[in-house]
């Protein structure tokens, strides 16, 4: 069993992605040995009104309902976002919610984001936030190419203590509040294996040889999930990190599927 919490579906306006349909995504997941995936809508990143993207996503995933689960996007700056959240949870079968502040024009620690996060927490829906969507160094001139700061994410979690917060594509975690603030150690925050190097990374000081690996040594593997950022990114890097992590079998099973199954209420044993 292997659950990918960080998949997307759709078209990205700045680059032709490799796997653009649910069928292609499933073929990719088969190659990688991923049994279940939480899937967010790429179209929703740039739509002003995100709800049609949520509807399209649910329809595209429906034929694969036993292994692909939708994550709905909410824009707390947009009129009627509460209705979108209702529809996501009650009609579209969403297992989580994406907030995309860097493209929707708000700060993650703003009152609007806090209200949306609180509403998600009330429903037991985890909130996913991408630290970045694409590498900003290649940004198209129409793309803001911004990352979401760990400070704002930590502030959101402090403001909404019962929130389940998943920061996907996180890099540079070790120096963040999530590791440095003992008050956050036992909170329900998670990162995935998609982009950060666990074991070795480019460094200029011996103490910076590792990022995610060192962060996990401080906070424990309970904060780690399997995620790939498909189809933006290659999927096998996360597999390689999972393979080379030194973990107990119980911790490995938690990262592979147990924690995700609990967070997203997935119908797997």
């Amino acid at each position: 069993m292997l659950v990918d919490v960080n998949c997307w579906l759709g078209h990205w306006p700045y680059r032709r992605l490799r796997d653009r349909t649910a069928e292609e995504l499933v073929a990719r997941l088969d190659y990688l040995g991923v049994t279940h995936a939480l899937v967010s809508s790429i179209d929703s990143i740039l739509y002003r009104n995100v709800q049609p993207a949520n509807e399209d996503l649910a329809e595209a995933l429906a034929p694969y309902g036993d292994r692909l689960f939708p994550v709905a996007t909410i824009n707390p700056n947009y009129a009627g976002w509460e209705d979108d959240l209702d529809a996501a949870a009650e009609r579209l079968g969403a297992r989580g919610v994406r907030l995309i502040p860097q493209y929707h024009g708000y700060d993650l620690d703003s009152p609007a984001a806090q209200r949306a996060a609180a509403a998600c927490a009330e429903r037991g829906l985890p909130v996913l936030v991408a630290h970045r969507i694409e590498d900003p160094r290649q940004r198209h001139h129409l793309d803001p190419g911004q990352t979401v700061g760990f400070g704002a994410a930590a502030a959101l979690l402090r403001a909404v203590p019962n929130l389940q917060l998943i920061i996907t594509n996180a890099r540079g975690l070790f120096h963040s509040d999530f590791v440095r603030d003992p008050g956050l150690r036992d909170k329900a925050w998670y990162v995935d294996l998609s982009l950060a190097e666990v074991d070795y990374q480019l460094h200029r000081h011996p103490a910076d040889r590792r990022d995610l690996g060192r962060a996990l040594a401080y906070v424990g593997p309970a904060h780690l999930l399997f995620g790939t950022h498909l189809p933006f990114s290659y999927g096998a890097p996360a597999l390689v990190k999972l393979e080379t992590l030194e973990l107990s079998e119980a911790d490995r099973a938690s990262i592979r599927f147990r924690t995700a199954a609990r967070l997203f209420a997935l119908p797997i044993p």
């Binding site: 070795y200 290659y234 996360a238 990190k241 080379t244």
Partner: peptide, 17 residues
């Protein structure tokens, strides 16, 4: 090559079509 992105660089070749 890796330039310090070690697991990532192995993974990108493995997942390339």
């Amino acid at each position: 090559g890796t330039d310090g992105t070690m697991a990532g660089s192995v993974g990108k070749v493995l997942d390339a079509d």
